[in-house]
Amino acid sequence: MTAGSHVAVAPAPSRATVAVSPVSQRRVLVSEWIKMRSLRSTGFTLLAAVVAMIGIGWIVGAATNSHWSSMDPRELAGFEPIGRSLAGVNLAQLAIGVLGVLFISGEYATGMIRATFSAVPTRLPVIWAKAALFAAVTFVLMLVSAFVAFLGGQHFLASHGTTLSAPHAVRAIVAVAVYLTLIGVFAVALGFILRSTAGGIATLFGLLLVLPGIGQVLPASWQTHTLPYLPSNAGSSMFTVVQDNPSALSPGTGLFVLCLWVAAALVAAAVLVRRRDA
């Protein structure tokens, strides 16, 4: 075997040195940021979350104000202006949850994950980067949206509205943003655990929407020990202003419980992603 034949076949391209740095958590974060911004679905879905958060708050405010005179006394008794303007959280969480799952499952579905894990073979930095990035984007966007929803909602509620200086107003707004952020990270972890868009979204919606409904048919004594700890109920106890459910968790405990859910999902994702073949 000699080199002669090779050299004759094709001229060697110039070997200008390419500057290459070691993989680091920060570089993986930059990479994920590029990935996130370069998919059109990211923008559309985040826009849907913003529109849901703001639009529903404003519409509910305007509708409540215009129907005020025809509302029955019981409805009036339960009226609480802060919660009304933040009602969009229920729809926004679906958009955020879908995007969180897609952020990961899209890579598994297309095969991109093999390129990702070839570049970052230790894999865990990818989980942390995706989770942190998604959390940061969701929090900033949803905090602004919740404020706008609140301010606009109160404006449309007119004389029935309240202000930011009302008790619990700021807490509720920030809690909504924190809740959506944690749901987003939870969805990212589910994406890594289940690796499929359909499975991830079904599991997330099952946990958020279906399980609380199923829990309603449990004996009452069981309900008080289970239902408040579901992610959606623990979350809503964070931002509910007037709590009429006696078994609900306190806002602080609700935050703690939801954080436990997210931490457990992230740990499961990390263990599985390290162990499984890509």
Binding site: V18, A19, V20, S21, P22, V23, R27, V28, V30, S31, E32, I34, K35, S38, A115, A119, V120
Partner: peptide, 9 residues
């Protein structure tokens, strides 16, 4: 670009 970023390329 995303792949390059992981290695600061």
């Amino acid at each position: 670009r995303a792949l390059a970023a992981t290695h600061g390329i």
